[in-house]
Design a protein around this nucleic acid. Sequence first.
DNA 1: CGACACTTTGACGCACTTCAAAGGGGGTGG
DNA 2: CCACCCCCTTTGAAGTGCGTCAAAGTGTCG
Lengths: 238, 238
Amino acid sequence: MLTPAAQPAIGSHAFPPLRMRGSVPPPASRPTHDAHVPLAETLRLIGATMAYPRNSEIFGEGEPAEFLYRVISGCVRTCKILSDGRRQVGDFYLPGEVFGFTGTDEHTLSAEAVTDVKMVVIKRTALNALADRDPAIARALFALTGRELRRVQDRILLLIKSAQERVAGFLLEMADRVGDGNHFDLPMSRQDIADYLGLTIETVSRTLSALESATTIEVPNARRIVLRDRSRLRRLIG
Amino acid sequence: MLTPAAQPAIGSHAFPPLRMRGSVPPPASRPTHDAHVPLAETLRLIGATMAYPRNSEIFGEGEPAEFLYRVISGCVRTCKILSDGRRQVGDFYLPGEVFGFTGTDEHTLSAEAVTDVKMVVIKRTALNALADRDPAIARALFALTGRELRRVQDRILLLIKSAQERVAGFLLEMADRVGDGNHFDLPMSRQDIADYLGLTIETVSRTLSALESATTIEVPNARRIVLRDRSRLRRLIG
DNA sequence: CGACACTTTGACGCACTTCAAAGGGGGTGG
DNA sequence: CCACCCCCTTTGAAGTGCGTCAAAGTGTCG
């Protein structure tokens, strides 16, 4: 277990009230071993396991992209922050998912731990070297980048979707990714969801309440979601 | 020169009033040669030059992704259409740019000619074969996919941007891509721009008018844009 | 010159944001 | 173990930016 590091926010940003995050402690190195890694078995073999406390920064926008990360436990968000404090969450990464892809050798988004997180970390140079010798690795990397591309392209559709469509789509997506049947716990806060969907926290909350009133979902507590009518939800996503 | 093919819209879709497009004539095969292709000289050597008339479909969503395309002249848009007729333009592609990348072996967007278009078309299988033998080709392909990924990730920021920020950003982007100094002609219609930015055609038009009133730009005619104050525009993009 | 498609402009309405305050829920200290 | 506190979430009320509906203006091609 990890202790959440509640430290003062970085001084160089002027965030609006609700937006302060934890600072950026150097991640605790933990070269241990892990089990049951499906495809990227390679990662496990040549990568190191690291732990990041909740709200710590994993990498920053503009930093050199040295590593690829595979989430073992917890949840990571990537995001961009505009000069006036507006934040856009790029994506969430859950156990089994790989992130750190970027078009160039610099990160175009920052990454932060939404919860305490354990990950396998691997040097991109090492992976690229492997990829040059093994076309299977190269293809796997290419495929992962492709998946990333598809996901972002689908998210562009949010631009023409209503708040209800965005939230309904988000719930169905999370159900697929973390869902155990028709109920699951959201690892991220309402603010994270809002910044992911391009809405305000109030609109997300109100939309969830409306879905609950319509008996489409249940929200027994802030983090828990129960899907009562998946097909109705599916009809809502446009 | 090509004659725009004005044919009845495909029957299987029920588009709202403004949305009818041309049909899908088989592209006129034209295995000619072309000049001055910078990096992907390879494309020119093993690819065929093809011409597509304005508003023709180049490929459809869900079709197998057989080819990669390099624009020689004209403009292409990729897009998705929701069941209720809403349209999201994924991106525009201008001379020199390559498109047709997809995470899987199926296109996740359709592609249409915004204007009459000439392109070099190359089979992905051929390119993949080359990439297996030549790591430089493989790297180039990977880099292009990466650029695509970055572009889409940047576009996600539109979710938290105002109409003015979206339009200002669009103008600056187009100036970089097709601009000859501070003036350029937009190859696409207001509807295309609106669907690209997630706005309505009226909002795009009104925003351009407002920018013109503020002497930030000039719009001598519907397609022509003159940037009078680039730095003010840059301050508007958030 | 007239028809047509696209663009611009105006008036109005609504979905979402903003501002404000009340409600949990979990952790800490007494 | 309870009480308090803090943070997050929910709910309410009012404001507004953008969408919708409608009509006039503009350019193009026959």
